[in-house]
């Protein structure tokens, strides 16, 4: 049940091909998010993970989000391995008024040291767009054999952030992809994270101790994870009202406002 407003920065629309879940229809998902007190959901497209017709993917994402403008903020899909991804970026910005884009480098077959990534950093900064990098969609140990991908190596982000310090970047589902000490380095360089895959007893609290409360944003990884798993982490870590407010709302507002 809702006990505070939330901006959920890690939401997807449409279906995951390997598992059918009850809230993967937009209306059901919107109902769930509203019941949980989510006031804004940054929504990417699961179609964008697999479908190479990215312009079609973004068209459908924009259309659904337009039906729920009070709640859904679309985060366009980009596949930097495709020719002319720059035009997809342009359409996200100009045609659909999107405030950010979401990347799935491991599913699209490139790494973060690819030249296109730096080019995106520069272009997105110029257009004031948030870039969300998804480190992992499923634990490597449980992936379908026909579609096994490693997590995204995040180390190249440091150079990109140093080169384009005005970039607004969030890594989603980062936990299993982070080397020891890497969260601290990336946070110091300006990268934000979400809490959907943060684990360990009191794990959110210990992450906040390491990176500070202003680099962590609420994210529930809907519809693939149970929503309460994210919400309850705040209670488990007992962060105090100010830090919770930053994580639940203010950090996301700041990231978008800056964008």
């Amino acid at each position: 049940m809702a006990d505070r407003p939330l901006i959920d920065t890690n939401v997807y629309l449409f279906r995951w091909p390997f598992r059918r879940v009850t809230v993967d229809e937009p209306a059901a998902l919107v109902r769930l998010l509203e019941e949980q007190g989510v006031v804004q959901a940054w929504a990417g497209s699961l179609e964008g993970v697999f479908d190479r017709d990215v312009s079609g993917v973004n068209q459908r994402l924009a259309a659904v989000c337009a039906a729920y403008p009070h709640l859904l903020a679309p985060m366009g899909s980009l596949n930097l391995a495709l020719p002319d991804w720059q035009d997809d970026l342009r359409r996200c910005h100009e045609l659909y008024g999107m405030r950010g884009v979401r990347l799935h480098p491991n599913y699209h077959g490139y790494t973060l040291d690819a030249p296109a990534v730096r080019a995106l950093w520069e272009a997105a900064a110029q257009l004031s767009l948030v870039v969300q990098v998804v480190a992992l969609l499923e634990d490597e140990r449980t992936q379908a054999p026909a579609c096994a991908v490693p997590h995204v190596a995040l180390a190249p982000l440091l150079d990109h952030m140093r080169a384009v310090p005005q970039a607004r970047v969030q890594v989603l589902n980062a936990q299993r992809a982070l080397r020891p000490g890497e969260a601290e380095e990336l946070a110091a360089a300006g990268v934000a994270f979400d809490l959907a895959t943060v684990e360990g007893a009191g794990g959110v609290g210990s992450l906040v101790e390491r990176i500070g409360p202003q680099r962590l944003l609420f994210g529930s990884f809907q519809p693939l994870f149970y929503f309460e798993s994210a919400r309850l982490k705040l209670r488990e870590s007992s962060l105090g009202a100010w830090a919770e407010e930053q994580i639940c709302v203010e950090n996301a507002r700041r990231l978008l406002a800056a964008a």
């Binding site: 360990g200 994210a230 919400r231 309850l232 982490k233 209670r235």
Partner: peptide
């Protein structure tokens, strides 16, 4: 726990 969060695992059942 403590490898996993009490919260993330409890959320499975509560939700």
């Amino acid at each position: 726990a403590p490898g996993r969060s009490f919260a993330s695992q409890l959320g499975k059942v509560l939700a």
